[in-house]
C-alpha cells in the first residue's frame, strides 16, 4: 500500500501520468472517493500518460467511453483505454449489459473505473488495483494505492 498526498489538481494529474508508465495491458484501476475527489482528474492523467491526445471528460452520463491507444513502446500491449463511471448504477448487472465487463482484464485493454465500489462484486480481484482518493480540504487529496 502506498499513500500519497497531493496539493493541487496538477499533482494528481501527474500522479496519473506516472502510474500510466507501469501499465502493460489488462490492468483494471478501480477508483473510489466522493464527488469532487479527483477521479476524473486522475483518469485524465492516466490517459495523458498513455499518449491519448483527445479530451477526456466525465463519463457519468454515458457510463463508458472508449479511447484508442497508439503503441508508443513495446512494453505496452494495450490498444485501448476504457473509462467507466458507475455513479448512476444501482446494480453491477448494468455494466454487464452494456458490454463493459467483456473488456475487463483483456491484455489489449486498460480499464479505469470511477465509482468502482458500485461494481466491486464483478471486478476480477487478481487484475484490479484499488485506488482510493480522500478529500483533505481544498486542494489537498490523499491517494491510497493498493499493492
Amino acid at each position: 500500500m502506498q499513500k500519497i498526498l497531493t496539493h493541487s489538481e496538477k499533482q494528481t494529474f501527474d500522479l496519473g501520468k506516472k502510474l500510466a508508465k507501469a501499465l502493460r495491458g489488462g490492468e483494471i484501476l478501480a477508483l473510489t472517493g466522493p464527488l469532487g475527489a479527483g477521479k476524473t482528474v486522475l483518469a485524465k492523467g492516466l490517459a495523458a500518460g498513455l499518449g491519448i491526445k483527445k479530451t477526456i471528460n466525465s463519463p457519468t452520463f454515458i457510463l463508458m467511453k472508449i479511447y484508442q491507444l497508439k503503441a508508443k513502446n513495446l512494453k505496452l500491449k494495450a490498444n485501448k483505454l476504457i473509462h467507466l463511471d458507475c455513479y448512476r448504477l444501482k446494480n453491477p448487472q448494468e455494466i454487464i449489459n452494456i458490454g463493459a465487463k467483456e473488456y475487463f482484464g483483456q491484455p489489449n485493454t486498460i480499464t479505469v473505473i470511477e465509482w468502482a465500489e458500485k461494481i466491486k462484486s464483478i471486478l476480477p480481484s487478481g487484475q484490479t488495483k484499488n485506488i482510493r482518493i480522500r478529500l483533505k480540504g481544498a486542494n489537498h487529496r490523499q491517494i491510497i494505492i493498493d499493492k
Binding site: 457510463l63 455513479y87 448512476r88 448504477l89 444501482k90 446494480n91 448487472q93 448494468e94 449489459n97
Partner: peptide, 11 residues
Amino acid sequence: KYGGVVPEIAA
C-alpha cells in the same frame, strides 16, 4: 427514488 437515471431500469 434512486437519485438519477438507472440505465438498466431505463432500458
